[in-house]
């Protein structure tokens, strides 16, 4: 078995063994889904139309923004990366494998949501499965890149939480999951386009559900993919073996370049 596959299987098992990761990857999104299914469908019947993509995006955010960065920072702080370095584990594996396993955990959650939302909450299924799959993968890829980048640039575990919440909380409020994007004030709607959740929800509406997208859904897909590539590239470039995170190749502010596709999307997509 290759080192990569072996490493992948270990990380996947860690996502279940580690109680925090199990909570963020599986229990929290599924619990939230059950709660929203029971409450929101009563309060806002319109929520059901995009319940599946909204809950899938929530699962992505939970796994990638809250679950992915902290273990990377903790591992660096505990000297695990140093141990990896002297044993030939490359930065590519250290960053890509946790992202891939988190995407796999999120896929399991997405399957559970897709399988249970129609019978329990009368949520409609996608009209285009390829559109759904591509959007899901692009959103997961982009958010995983962002999570990994936060893990790489954060100077400590405490800072990691701040960076993660900076994306997570606005995404919950403005990302189109709870409240349709069209209901946001125009300026707020534009700002919301800087969030991966907004782009993901827009792509799901247009490409998977055949609903009217708020802006070009293909553009959203491109923004998600481009940002994912940029985020992973920056994460590998800025990666640091040192536990104190003091000898990065570039300044951590370089990570802001990851926003570039979102800014371009905000300016061009309408």
């Amino acid at each position: 078995m290759s080192a990569f596959v072996n490493h992948f299987l270990f990380e996947f098992r860690t996502g279940i063994r580690n109680k925090n990761l199990l909570m963020l990857n599986h229990l929290f999104p599924l619990g939230f889904y059950a709660m929203m299914g029971l409450i929101m469908t009563e309060i806002n019947p319109g929520f059901v139309a995009t319940m599946i993509p909204a809950m899938v995006v929530f699962a992505i955010l939970s796994g990638m923004m809250l679950g992915l960065p902290a273990p990377l920072v903790a591992a660096r702080e505990a000297g695990i990366f140093r141990s990896y370095k002297v044993n030939g584990v490359p930065p590519f594996s250290i960053l890509i494998i946790p992202a891939l396993t988190t995407i796999l955990h999120t896929t399991v959650v997405a399957v559970v949501i897709i399988a249970t939302a129609p019978p329990f909450f009368d949520a409609p299924l996608p009209v285009s499965w390829p559109g759904f799959a591509v959007t899901f993968l692009a959103a997961a890829f982009s958010c995983a890149g962002l999570g990994v980048l936060i893990g790489v640039i954060s100077s400590s575990s405490r800072i990691t939480v701040l960076w993660s919440q900076l994306i997570y909380l606005p995404s919950m409020m403005l990302g189109g999951m709870m409240l349709p994007h069209e209901l946001l004030p125009e300026a707020m709607g534009k700002v919301a386009q800087l969030l991966p959740a907004t782009q993901a929800m827009n792509a799901f509406r247009g490409l998977a559900y055949g609903l009217t997208a708020d802006f070009d859904p293909w553009g959203s897909l491109i923004v998600l993919l481009a940002s994912g590539v940029l985020e992973f590239g920056l994460a590998i470039y800025l990666f640091n073996w040192d536990r104190h995170n003091t000898t990065q190749r570039g300044h951590p502010l370089l990570a802001l370049l990851a926003l570039l596709p979102y800014i371009v999307g905000m300016l061009l997509l309408s």
């Binding site: 490493h7 063994r17 000297g79 695990i80 990366f81 141990s83 002297v86």
Partner: peptide, 24 residues
């Protein structure tokens, strides 16, 4: 290298650790 602080993931099993590093 045996580092001063061992630096292994908390959740890795002894067998897994051996398999993991030998694979690399």
């Amino acid at each position: 290298v045996q580092l001063q602080s061992s630096g292994l993931p908390d959740n890795i099993c002894v067998d897994e650790a051996m398999k993991f590093f030998c694979a690399y």
